[in-house]
Computed example of a mutant assay.
Amino acid sequence: MKKDDTLDLEIIKYATEGKGIARIDRNIIKPVQDAQPQESNEKNYVVFVQGAYPGDKVTAQLRKIKKSYAEAVIVKIISPSKDRVEPRCKFFGTCGGCKQQDLNYQTQLKFKQELVRETFEHIAGLKDFDFEEIIPSENNFFYRNKMEFSFADKRWLTKEEIGSEDVIDKDFALGLHIPRIFDKVLDINECFLQSEMSNEILNFTRKFFKGKNASIYSTKTHVGYLRNLVIRQSQNTDDLMVNLVTSKEDDALVKEYTSELLKVVPQITTVINNINKKKASVAVGDYEKVYHGEGFIYDKIVDYNFRISANSFFQTNTLQAENLYKTAMEFAELKGDEIIYNLYSGAETMA
């Protein structure tokens, strides 16, 4: 068989990042050179299938063929795994924000636990070690305290948009990148990762700057104004930050944007403009200007308050960060006379 050929597969195991594993006879894919393929029941060749889960029976298209494995994508699900669920988001499968939204959450935890165990056994060579159960996230949706959206002057069109008779602006997008495509963005109007308020900010920002005919920074020509919209929302306080990342200053425009945005979402506590003059596609400015509030927000983990700036590192799932740190403290069994180094920790939440 060769690239783009299809074959029917039964998924028996989970890999990582939304890939299922099937095993087949090597002769089916790549017969031994200078020899006639022979009948064999030995399934000694691995096929990684993007978007497939154990229990699926699928028709898959080969995208990459290597000596010891192949990569494929689903063309058709012949019979689905019992663990599949209906994804909540209409952009799932196209957007790169979520990998397993169509898989039961408890099953996700089980697969992740198996992957961690195999890592310790096969890579670290450990055996007979204690293995704790994963602590599940309390929220499956609206759990992130930070979302980073991108502007693009090339909009990725979905299959529905391509087949639509509606007039679509292909030169303005605000949303999330398509996996492995750096210059196109999927224009989204709702996301279930942060909050409904975040969606309001996202949609207002798009409408405002399109209405102003604001230019979008191009990663190819390095010309244009708008780069990113970053929203940080505290989980344990009422603080809410909007950070507009641009390639240059436009004081009058950002002041008007701030004023109009606060009318729509008055809960916003600070608005910042990061000015990024570098060519690299990063949502971090060389400097920043504050247009509303103090220029930072506060959030709380366990009994401690943390001041978070626009470019601070802070664990994106606040509630799970609390579980992580509580567990680390329990395991550490600290007595109070130890010296602890808090390195590479962003806002120093561990200390």
Rank of each mutant, 00 (worst) to 15 (best):
V32A: 15
K207Y: 04
H222R: 13
S79W: 02
N139G: 00
Q33M: 11
R206C: 06
K43E: 10
E114W: 09
S137M: 06
S312I: 11
S150W: 00
S218Y: 03
T205V: 10
C98R: 04
T270W: 09
F142W: 08
E333D: 12
D4K: 15
D153A: 08
K146L: 08
K220M: 03
E132L: 09
Y53A: 03
N305C: 00
N342G: 09
L7E: 04
K13I: 05
T318K: 00
Q233W: 08
G175N: 07
G224K: 06
Y53T: 02
N236F: 14
E114T: 12
K146D: 07
A332V: 00
I297P: 01
N203D: 08
F151T: 00
E71S: 11
A152W: 01
Q61M: 13
E17L: 05
S312V: 09
D128A: 14
S215Q: 10
V242Y: 11
P31V: 13
H177N: 13
I268L: 02
E148L: 10
R117L: 13
D25Y: 11
E161W: 03
P266L: 01
G163S: 12
F306T: 02
C89H: 03
I339C: 14
G93R: 08
Q108N: 07
F142D: 09
F141G: 04
C191F: 07
R307H: 04
V290G: 08
I168F: 07
G96F: 01
K220D: 04
F92C: 05
N228K: 06
E86L: 06
E249N: 12
Q61D: 01
G336Q: 07
D251H: 15
N317E: 10
K3W: 00
K210S: 09
G336W: 08
M197K: 09
G224H: 05
F204W: 10
V73K: 15
K159M: 03
T327R: 13
K146I: 11
T327H: 14
D25V: 02
V223K: 15
T327G: 13
G295L: 11
Q267H: 06
C98G: 01
T237P: 00
R144E: 03
G295N: 14
I188Y: 05
N44K: 14
L157S: 05
T269F: 10
Y304P: 01
S195L: 05
K30S: 13
D8E: 15
L193I: 06
D83H: 12
G163E: 11
N189Q: 12
T205H: 04
T318M: 06
N317M: 04
A70G: 10
H292I: 04
N199D: 08
E260Y: 02
E42C: 03
G285M: 12
